[in-house]
Protein backbone atom coordinates (compact mmCIF):
# COMPACT_ATOMS: atom_id res chain seq x y z
CA UNK A 1 0.00 0.00 0.00
CA UNK A 2 1.49 3.30 -0.95
CA UNK A 3 0.69 6.90 -0.16
CA UNK A 4 -1.17 8.90 -2.77
CA UNK A 5 -1.53 12.55 -3.65
CA UNK A 6 -5.09 13.50 -2.67
CA UNK A 7 -7.18 15.37 -5.23
CA UNK A 8 -7.49 19.12 -4.81
CA UNK A 9 -11.07 20.09 -3.89
CA UNK A 10 -11.01 22.92 -6.50
CA UNK A 11 -9.47 23.77 -9.87
CA UNK A 12 -5.86 24.97 -10.07
CA UNK A 13 -7.01 28.45 -11.08
CA UNK A 14 -9.84 28.63 -8.54
CA UNK A 15 -7.89 30.54 -5.91
CA UNK A 16 -6.82 33.36 -8.21
CA UNK A 17 -5.91 36.14 -7.71
CA UNK A 18 -4.83 35.35 -4.12
CA UNK A 19 -2.90 32.25 -5.16
CA UNK A 20 -2.09 31.99 -8.85
CA UNK A 21 -2.60 28.92 -10.99
CA UNK A 22 1.16 28.79 -11.56
CA UNK A 23 1.84 28.71 -7.83
CA UNK A 24 -0.68 25.91 -7.32
CA UNK A 25 0.70 23.95 -10.27
CA UNK A 26 4.07 23.88 -8.55
CA UNK A 27 2.91 23.76 -4.96
CA UNK A 28 0.44 20.94 -5.44
CA UNK A 29 1.73 19.32 -8.63
CA UNK A 30 5.45 19.38 -7.80
CA UNK A 31 6.11 20.01 -4.09
CA UNK A 32 3.19 18.06 -2.61
CA UNK A 33 3.68 15.30 -5.18
CA UNK A 34 7.42 15.11 -4.41
CA UNK A 35 6.73 14.64 -0.68
CA UNK A 36 4.39 11.75 -1.56
CA UNK A 37 6.96 10.18 -3.91
CA UNK A 38 9.83 10.62 -1.46
CA UNK A 39 7.80 9.07 1.35
CA UNK A 40 6.91 6.08 -0.83
CA UNK A 41 10.60 5.62 -1.61
CA UNK A 42 11.66 5.88 2.03
CA UNK A 43 9.21 3.66 3.94
CA UNK A 44 9.66 0.21 2.34
CA UNK A 45 11.52 -2.07 4.74
CA UNK A 46 10.98 0.24 7.72
CA UNK A 47 8.44 -0.09 10.53
CA UNK A 48 6.49 2.73 8.87
CA UNK A 49 5.75 0.76 5.71
CA UNK A 50 2.08 0.36 6.61
CA UNK A 51 1.81 3.17 9.11
CA UNK A 52 -0.63 6.05 8.91
CA UNK A 53 0.65 9.57 8.30
CA UNK A 54 -0.41 10.41 11.87
CA UNK A 55 1.79 7.63 13.26
CA UNK A 56 4.68 8.80 11.08
CA UNK A 57 4.22 12.36 12.36
CA UNK A 58 4.23 11.20 15.98
CA UNK A 59 7.02 8.62 15.81
CA UNK A 60 9.30 9.02 12.79
CA UNK A 61 12.44 11.12 12.39
CA UNK A 62 14.61 12.36 9.53
CA UNK A 63 13.42 11.99 5.96
CA UNK A 64 10.39 9.83 6.79
CA UNK A 65 9.13 12.44 9.27
CA UNK A 66 9.89 15.37 6.94
CA UNK A 67 8.14 13.90 3.93
CA UNK A 68 5.29 12.25 5.84
CA UNK A 69 4.50 15.43 7.76
CA UNK A 70 4.73 17.54 4.61
CA UNK A 71 2.20 15.24 2.86
CA UNK A 72 -0.21 15.67 5.78
CA UNK A 73 0.45 19.41 6.19
CA UNK A 74 -0.15 20.23 2.53
CA UNK A 75 -3.35 18.18 2.34
CA UNK A 76 -4.60 19.93 5.47
CA UNK A 77 -3.57 23.36 4.10
CA UNK A 78 -5.13 22.90 0.67
CA UNK A 79 -8.32 21.56 2.25
CA UNK A 80 -8.52 24.66 4.48
CA UNK A 81 -8.95 26.87 1.41
CA UNK A 82 -11.76 27.44 -1.06
CA UNK A 83 -12.74 29.93 -3.74
CA UNK A 84 -15.26 32.56 -2.61
CA UNK A 85 -14.54 31.79 1.03
CA UNK A 86 -13.13 33.99 3.78
CA UNK A 87 -15.26 36.05 6.10
CA UNK A 88 -15.65 34.86 9.67
CA UNK A 89 -16.41 31.53 11.35
CA UNK A 90 -19.77 30.90 12.96
CA UNK A 91 -21.14 28.55 15.60
CA UNK A 92 -18.97 26.84 18.23
CA UNK A 93 -15.66 27.78 16.58
CA UNK A 94 -16.65 31.46 16.56
CA UNK A 95 -17.59 31.19 20.25
CA UNK A 96 -14.30 29.48 21.12
CA UNK A 97 -12.27 32.10 19.24
CA UNK A 98 -14.08 34.86 21.14
CA UNK A 99 -13.49 33.08 24.43
CA UNK A 100 -9.80 32.28 23.88
CA UNK A 101 -8.62 35.35 21.90
CA UNK A 102 -11.11 38.08 22.83
CA UNK A 103 -12.42 38.61 19.30
CA UNK A 104 -12.03 37.32 15.75
CA UNK A 105 -9.94 40.42 14.92
CA UNK A 106 -7.53 39.69 17.77
CA UNK A 107 -7.24 36.05 16.72
CA UNK A 108 -6.56 37.05 13.13
CA UNK A 109 -3.89 39.50 14.16
CA UNK A 110 -2.16 36.97 16.40
CA UNK A 111 -2.26 34.18 13.79
CA UNK A 112 -0.99 36.54 11.08
CA UNK A 113 1.87 37.64 13.32
CA UNK A 114 2.84 34.01 13.93
CA UNK A 115 2.84 33.38 10.15
CA UNK A 116 4.81 36.51 9.28
CA UNK A 117 7.46 36.19 12.00
CA UNK A 118 8.28 32.50 11.60
CA UNK A 119 11.91 32.69 10.48
CA UNK A 120 12.81 30.44 7.55
CA UNK A 121 10.46 27.74 6.26
CA UNK A 122 7.49 26.48 8.22
CA UNK A 123 3.84 26.68 9.22
CA UNK A 124 1.55 28.74 11.45
CA UNK A 125 -1.19 26.71 13.15
CA UNK A 126 -4.42 27.19 15.03
CA UNK A 127 -4.70 24.18 17.34
CA UNK A 128 -6.91 22.82 20.11
CA UNK A 129 -4.99 21.74 23.19
CA UNK A 130 -5.76 18.91 25.65
CA UNK A 131 -8.12 21.14 27.64
CA UNK A 132 -10.08 22.08 24.52
CA UNK A 133 -8.59 25.60 24.47
CA UNK A 134 -7.48 27.20 21.19
CA UNK A 135 -3.83 28.19 20.75
CA UNK A 136 -1.61 29.52 17.98
CA UNK A 137 1.72 27.78 17.40
CA UNK A 138 4.61 28.09 14.93
CA UNK A 139 6.34 25.00 13.55
CA UNK A 140 9.58 25.12 11.53
CA UNK A 141 10.08 23.18 8.29
CA UNK A 142 7.81 20.09 8.30
CA UNK A 143 6.72 20.53 11.93
CA UNK A 144 3.21 19.41 12.86
CA UNK A 145 1.43 20.03 16.20
CA UNK A 146 0.10 16.42 16.37
CA UNK A 147 3.57 15.46 17.55
CA UNK A 148 2.99 17.53 20.71
CA UNK A 149 -0.49 16.15 21.32
CA UNK A 150 -2.24 19.21 19.90
CA UNK A 151 -5.13 19.01 17.41
CA UNK A 152 -4.68 21.11 14.24
CA UNK A 153 -7.65 23.26 13.21
CA UNK A 154 -6.17 25.64 10.60
CA UNK A 155 -2.75 26.17 9.04
CA UNK A 156 -0.92 28.58 6.77
CA UNK A 157 2.11 27.44 4.76
CA UNK A 158 4.85 30.06 4.97
CA UNK A 159 7.57 28.22 3.07
CA UNK A 160 8.66 30.72 0.42
CA UNK A 161 7.42 28.34 -2.31
CA UNK A 162 3.86 29.00 -1.06
CA UNK A 163 3.95 32.64 -2.16
CA UNK A 164 7.17 33.59 -3.93
CA UNK A 165 5.86 33.57 -7.52
CA UNK A 166 2.95 35.80 -6.49
CA UNK A 167 4.32 37.94 -3.65
CA UNK A 168 8.16 37.49 -3.67
CA UNK A 169 9.56 38.80 -0.37
CA UNK A 170 6.20 40.25 0.70
CA UNK A 171 5.07 37.48 3.04
CA UNK A 172 2.81 39.88 5.01
CA UNK A 173 0.79 40.54 1.82
CA UNK A 174 0.38 36.81 1.23
CA UNK A 175 -0.80 36.21 4.79
CA UNK A 176 -3.25 39.12 4.59
CA UNK A 177 -4.71 37.69 1.36
CA UNK A 178 -4.78 34.15 2.76
CA UNK A 179 -7.77 35.13 4.95
CA UNK A 180 -9.89 35.63 1.80
CA UNK A 181 -9.55 31.92 1.07
CA UNK A 182 -10.06 30.32 4.48
CA UNK A 183 -12.99 27.92 4.26
CA UNK A 184 -14.55 28.35 7.70
CA UNK A 185 -17.12 25.59 7.03
CA UNK A 186 -14.35 22.98 6.78
CA UNK A 187 -12.30 24.54 9.55
CA UNK A 188 -15.31 24.77 11.85
CA UNK A 189 -16.22 21.14 11.18
CA UNK A 190 -12.69 20.07 12.19
CA UNK A 191 -13.08 21.96 15.44
Amino acid sequence: MSFELPKLPYALNALEPVISQKTLEFHYGKHHQAYVNNLNNLVPGTKFENASLETIIKEADGGIFNNGAQVWNHTFFFNSLAPDAGGEPSGTLADAIKKDFGSFAEFKEKFSKAAVTLFGSGWAWLVKNGEGKLEIVQEPNAGNPLRKGLTPVLTCDVWEHAYYLDYQNRRPDFVESFWKLVDWKTVGARF
Binding site: F26, S121, E160, H161, Y164, L165
Partner: peptide
Protein backbone atom coordinates in the same frame (compact mmCIF):
# COMPACT_ATOMS: atom_id res chain seq x y z
CA UNK B 1 13.80 29.20 -1.95
CA UNK B 2 14.02 32.98 -2.52
CA UNK B 3 17.49 32.44 -4.03
CA UNK B 4 16.10 30.47 -6.97
CA UNK B 5 12.32 30.19 -7.01
CA UNK B 6 11.49 32.79 -9.68
CA UNK B 7 13.69 31.00 -12.21
CA UNK B 8 13.95 27.39 -11.03
CA UNK B 9 10.82 26.93 -8.84
CA UNK B 10 11.02 23.48 -7.18
Amino acid sequence: EHAYYLKYQN
